[in-house]
Design a protein around this nucleic acid. Structure first.
Length: 502
RNA sequence: UCCUCGGUAGCUCAAUGGCAGAGCAUGCGGCUGUUAACCGCAGGGUUGCUGGUUCGAGUCCAGCCCGGGGAGCCA
């Protein structure tokens, strides 16, 4: 006896001319007197199903007519190639089996605001854009595993509960662990180092938590991090690895998820430039770039172009508002959509004009020793087409475990990778301090409890070796590759300040 | 925590201090190839909350609540 199998929309070409049954949900329905068009969604794609009253029984017609948006249904019919269908195929219905008629589905085929969509995240995931993003996220996750597994890395898991605040800087979520204080991890790195001493090359892949009250398009409180850690790697080998990994991921997404990128309207040419040879600039060079005349000119140009754009948009707005009164229905909708776009852009311009002086001040007055802010990172990445790597930060602003440059004690061998197009830091890492004495000194300098790091210090007592690693933020990577304006759309159920539901 | 913008029908948005409206969604009717289909009719409101100014407040003022994105911090 043959096993029962389902037919999916993404394999319809195999069934051309044959009868097939699709199981899914009603994405949209349109009808005239004797024709009903059902756009069916089955998780693999969309297929338009046509019910012709002349071809079906009264029962089937009534069943089709009763379908509402997101009703669950099995539809049987002949698969026909047809240019009028977006997928290239459509189904001429002969049978309809209703599983459930959906109540009024809240997400209508219309624009919605973010607050409403976030409240309905559990349903929003069914929408086309969200569907495409999740498939790209999956592709990125799979690419990361493939990249490391092909290179002999062992995936190991760091604990999520930790007994101490690792770097002493970030705000962590505190939990009660059988009457003992425990924190949700902000990084698996220290444990990664222990695992690398056992297996040579390892990577962790898991959730990390930050309790900081950041409300921006780049922040979540729960994010997934990928943290490779490699024995006998120095900073430069570490940078080579990070660059190869990012190039590999982007290439996989470009070749295997082209359709989804198109659904998102992503400018693929920008991703095609991401093929190794990322610029590597030292922190000191970055500071010089920020303080340069070129940077000043660029900011002035930005300000001028925003100021010129503003009146142009206002003129256009006045013109189409005037036209709106006597416009026909279709044109009216078009005008209203454009008006919303213009209003949104005007708000952006207003905000930019408020921010540019702040950015200019931050960049031009930057001193060696200052940390780089979000705007500084954006300004730096605007000079390049690919991600860039900034390395050799002032030791003072970096974590205690980072190795210092033997040639310059003030410099730490840390590296950040900044994504282009303003997506900010996607990777942070570096070479770790392998000397027991140096680590003990740093722990004292940072006022950290030596006792909590006893096991970590053991790694420097028993066969300590030079080693390096980095952490990749999955959500920011997904946001960048998908070209999204906010990280909240990169994870099925985002956790952020004020958002614990659904 | 600070700065800034916002909250009007289920949803997206209008409304000089002067009768709370449109589109979508829903229900009913019409239409034989629709692509956010279209056309007609109908139902649908504590204008975030509390107080104040005013003959009169969605609109002005104060406080609070909720949300957007920016600073700090970070992936």
């Amino acid at each position: 006896m043959s096993k029962k199998k389902l037919t999916y929309i993404n394999e319809l070409e195999k069934f051309e001319g044959q009868s097939a049954t699709l199981h899914g949900w009603v994405y949209n329905k349109r009808s005239s007197k004797s024709l009903i068009f059902i756009v069916l969604r089955d998780g693999t794609g969309l297929c338009q199903c046509i019910v012709n009253q002349a071809d079906v029984s009264a029962e089937v017609w009534e069943a089709a007519d009763s379908l509402s948006q997101e009703s669950s249904v099995a539809i049987t019919g002949k698969i026909i190639e047809d240019e009028r269908s977006s997928s290239g195929y459509e189904l001429h219905v002969t049978g309809v089996k209703v599983y459930q008629i959906a109540q009024e589905y809240p997400i209508t085929p219309k624009e919605h605001g973010t607050e409403f969509l976030m409240e309905n995240r559990h349903l929003w995931l069914r929408s086309q854009r969200q569907w495409a993003i999740m498939r790209i996220r999956n592709e990125i996750i799979f690419a990361i595993h493939k990249f490391f597994q092909d290179r002999g890395f062992i995936q190991m898991d760091a604990p999520i509960f930790t007994g101490n605040a690792v770097e002493g800087t970030s705000t962590l979520f505190e939990t009660n662990y059988f009457d003992e204080k425990a924190y949700l991890t902000q990084s698996g790195q220290l444990y990664g180092e222990a695992m690398a001493m056992a297996h040579g090359k390892i990577y962790t892949f898991g959730p990390t938590f930050r309790a900081e009250k950041s409300k921006t398009r780049r922040h979540l409180t729960e994010v997934w991090m990928i943290e490779p850690e490699i024995a006998y790697y120095d900073l430069y080998m570490n940078m080579d690895l990070a660059e190869e990994m990012i190039s590999f991921i982007v290439d996989r997404v470009l070749t295997r998820r082209e359709q989804e990128l198109e659904t998102l309207g992503r400018d693929i040419s920008k991703l095609q430039k991401v093929t190794n040879n990322f610029p590597r600039i030292t922190y000191t060079e970055a500071i010089e770039m920020l303080k340069s005349d070129k940077m000043r000119d660029m900011l002035n140009d930005m300000e001028t172009s925003r100021k010129e754009e503003d009146p142009k948009l206002r003129t256009e707005m006045a013109e189409i508002e005037k036209e709106h009164g006597q416009a026909k229905k279709g044109r009216k909708l078009q005008i209203e959509k454009r008006l919303r776009e213009i209003r949104a852009r005007l708000e952006e311009i207003e905000e930019d004009l408020r921010n540019i002086p702040v950015w200019r001040k931050s960049a031009l007055e930057k001193q060696w020793g200052d940390d780089l802010g979000g705007s500084d990172e954006t300004l730096l990445t605007m000079q390049f087409d690919t991600p860039i790597m900034v390395y050799g930060y002032p030791a003072e602003i970096k974590a205690f475990y980072m190795k210092h440059d033997p040639n310059d004690e003030k410099v730490a061998l840390g590296v950040d990778m900044l994504a282009p197009e303003g997506y900010g830091e996607i990777i942070g890492g570096g070479q770790r301090e392998e000397s027991l004495d140096a680590l003990l000194t740093r722990i004292k300098e940072h006022n950290l409890p030596e006792e909590a790091f006893k096991w970590y210090l053991d790694l420097r007592k028993f066969g300590s070796v030079p080693h390096s690693g980095f952490g990749l933020g999955l959500e920011r990577t997904v946001a960048w590759i998908c070209g999204l304006s906010h990280v909240r759309e990169t994870i099925p159920f985002p956790r952020m300040l004020g958002r614990l539901y659904p």
